[in-house]
Structures are given as C-alpha cells and as structure tokens.
C-alpha cells in the first residue's frame, strides 16, 4: 500500500506546487501551462492522442518482440560457439555505443523511404536489442557448475540440458533485461519518430513536435505525460511478469 501511496502523495504535491507557481503569474503560459490546461488539452484531443499513442506503442511492441527473439537467439549462438561470439559481439557493442539518434537518419534513408514504419521499428529494435543480448549471454554463462556436472552424470540430453538447466538459469537475467529494453524500445521509437519528422506523422513524438512548432505547450505536456504513462506501464508489466515467473525466489 505504502509503495503506491507514497509516490501518489509526491505526485499530488508536485502538481499542487506547479499549479500554485503558474497561478502566481511568475511564468508565461507558453513556457509552463497550468496542470488544468494540460488536462484540458488531453481531454480535448483524446482521440488523436490515443491513435498516436497506439501507433507508438505498436512500433515499441514490434521492436521489443524482435529484440527478444534476436537477442535470445544470438545469445544461444554465443553459448554454443565461442567463435560466433568472438566474431559478432564487437559489432553488437558498436551498435550499442553509437548514439541511436545518429544512426536513425541513415536507417530512414536505407529502409524508410517507401515504408517509414519499418524504419521506426528497426531504430527502436536497435535501441532495445543489446541489453537483451548482454543479459541473456550472462544468464546462459551463470549455470551452476556442479549442477551442470550432475546433468552430465545423469546422462542428460542436449535438449534436457537446455530446457531444464540453461533456460531456467537465464530466465531471471532475461526478465531483468526486459524491464530495461522495454523502456529503450519506447525511447528508440520516439527518437525515430522525431528524426522521421512529418514522415512519421502518426506517433506521439510527432504530436509533441507538431505542438512545439505551434507553441502549444499544454499539448506538448499532454503528449509527454502519455509517453511517461506508456513507459511506466511497460516497466511494471514486465516487473509483474518477473514477480510471477520468479515466484520461487520469494
């Protein structure tokens, strides 16, 4: 209860302070609109905002699914072959350390001219992929050596070793990475929409960009709030999944 109540109280205090500050007239409305104006903008534009949110969420979800499939598959390949790991891992690191905002224009030119959404998904995937690969690789390497020897001693097949030892060992690592990558996929999708500009004119980032161009700060805030809510929902969904699947640890 405290876990929900305390952040809610803090949020209420922030909103109240924000309202009082704006009401004091010390700050122009186009720089900081009142909380009520933000709520009004959200209600007045609820339909378009929801459509935009659905579009961004769709890109995020597709990218995250692709990141999970590719990250897990590559981590498995790494665990089976040191040569594959030595060959491919540096490229994965290069992709991770290169700022996504600098790769995005290239991806848009390469694959986005006839299909912007494909480019958005690829950019979001680039942002979400590495934590899954790195964590899953670490998880597959974290197998208890003694337990592994027992599997050998009792004649386990390769499939039994994977399904009954490697996979459950790596599961906590994968679930932890999902909480991180879920947020990264959303950031990637938003960055991609920003870079795509009017080309990606369906998502929340475009709504924020468009409102910014017209100095409609309350609409910008409304878009930002929706993005935050989406990010929080993604994080807590995976946290709940983690709690459910790893109930044995409690």
């Amino acid at each position: 209860m405290k876990r929900v109540l305390l952040p809610l109280l803090a949020l209420s205090a922030i909103i109240l302070a924000w309202h009082l500050w704006v009401a004091s007239g010390n700050v122009p409305k186009f720089i900081l609109p009142a909380p009520g104006a933000v709520a009004g903008a959200l209600i007045d534009n609820f339909g378009p905002f929801m459509l935009a949110a659905a579009s961004t969420f769709k890109v995020t979800l597709i990218a995250l699914t692709a990141a999970v499939i590719s990250g897990v598959a590559l981590a498995l390949a790494f665990s089976l072959s040191r040569t594959v790991e030595m060959t491919v891992y540096p490229f994965a690191v290069i992709l991770q350390v290169t700022p996504i905002v600098s790769i995005a224009p290239l991806v848009l030119i390469w694959v986005g001219i006839d299909n912007v959404e494909r480019a958005l998904v690829i950019i979001a995937w680039l942002a979400a992929f590495f934590p899954i690969l790195a964590n899953m690789s670490a998880g597959l390497r974290a197998v208890d050596k003694n337990l592994s020897e027992l599997f050998t001693l009792y004649g386990a097949t390769r499939w039994q070793r994977f399904w009954r030892l490697l996979w459950p060992t790596a599961m906590p690592y994968l679930l932890a990475s999902l909480k991180v990558s879920g947020g990264f996929a959303l950031i990637g999708a938003v960055v991609a929409e920003f870079v795509a500009g009017s080309g990606g004119a369906t998502g929340l980032a475009w709504r924020i960009l468009e409102a910014g161009n017209r100095l409609q700060t309350e609409k910008m805030f409304a878009g930002l709030i929706l993005l935050s809510v989406m990010g929080v929902c993604i994080f807590y969904s995976f946290a709940a999944l983690e709690r459910w699947l790893l109930a044995y640890r409690r």
């Binding site: 208890d144 003694n146 337990l147 020897e149 027992l150 001693l153 004649g155 009954r164 044995y248």
Partner: peptide, 28 residues
C-alpha cells in the same frame, strides 16, 4: 550406478524439493 553430492547442495532454485529429488529419474 553412482551419485554425486557436492559441497554446495547444487539444487535447482526454480524446482520444488520433490522435483529436485526426482532429477536423476526424470532425466532418464
């Protein structure tokens, strides 16, 4: 027919006590 017991119990944390005990049989 031989079995091994290590210094640390080397149990599967995701499996119940019964599932852990049954490991040698369930792998066969």
């Amino acid at each position: 027919r031989l079995s091994f017991v290590f210094q640390d119990a080397a149990l599967m944390p995701w499996a119940t006590v019964t599932e852990n005990v049954l490991l040698p049989l369930s792998l066969k």
